[in-house]
Nucleic acid binder design. Sequence first.
DNA 1: AAGACGGGGTG
DNA 2: CACCCAGTCTT
Length: 346
Amino acid sequence: MNNFSKILIDWYSEHKRELPWRESTDPYIIWISEIILQQTRVVQGYDYFMRFINRFPDVKTLAEAEEDEVMKYWQGLGYYSRARNLHTAARSMNGAFPKTYPEVLALKGVGEYTAAAICSFAYDMPYAVVDGNVYRVLSRYLGIETPIDSTEGKKLFSVLAGEMMDKSRPAVYNQAIMDFGALQCTPQTPVCLFCPLADSCIALSKGLVMKLPVKQHKTKTTNRYLNYVYAHTNTYTFINKRTGDDIWKNLFELPLIETVESVTEEEFLALPDFTKLFASGETPVVHSVCRDVKHVLSHRVLYANFYEVNLPEDTLSFSSFQKVRTEELGQYAVPRLIHAFLEKYV
DNA sequence: AAGACGGGGTG
DNA sequence: CACCCAGTCTT
């Protein structure tokens, strides 16, 4: 075993985090935890994992569930394609989790990182994980300035990760390097003063720690303007399921009119897309509930306005939307933005 | 090769 | 505000 992996594993034995999915070698448990943890911090995903496993303890249970319920268990976590893919993958398994790397990799929503994680943690196969932590630890330790989001960089780090791995203990090694990245070799203020790898870290000796890893990516954000209509009777509320390739696919929301620019209340009330929601003869009685609610996504900034429309019990308006009992709204998976509105005003 | 996809934490 | 998080899929 090389010195790098020995130091890492020694460090891990003293500093490892106790996490429920580490108590198991059930590939299903590992799989769920890994999907939840994609682009998601442990503290953020922890409760979701516990709830999810409690409701869907095995492949069969998940495969037999309705997608809408799976989405509900994912509500608020973000990157909802993970939940859809999870469900699709469960149904593709025929009751048994696949046992080879190529089969695991072929699962919907499972890429190279997750396949390596599952196969090493569950089966102790020698596949090196390459996640954000590994990019950071290796780029610093080896002093590599190749951008990690370039094709060349991805290939290079994949090779290096395999070379640095202790192939006699892939499961422990993979956990060790990721915990090391998460707790010691952190993005902002790494603990270089007390680092067990300080003697041989290239970035530290060259003063490159804060410059690594290099990313060439620059994401530009754009604005979107959402006008929601909380249309309801005394007992029912109108909702809509988002379909199509856009944010929040397969989640529910209130009737929405999106505009290219921000619109005032007067402008909104005159919008044909709004007025046409009302059956002829029914006069819109609308009041603005809240405006310019800012909701930030990673590459979008959403500005939302909410309008309330009170309708008679036998209304013919909003006929293109789903009419659900207001007290049953809670069983529908909704985006954070909608959930916050519902909590506050409904 | 570049974007899209959520939401939250950190400095 | 900028960057990052146990990444993957689509164009």
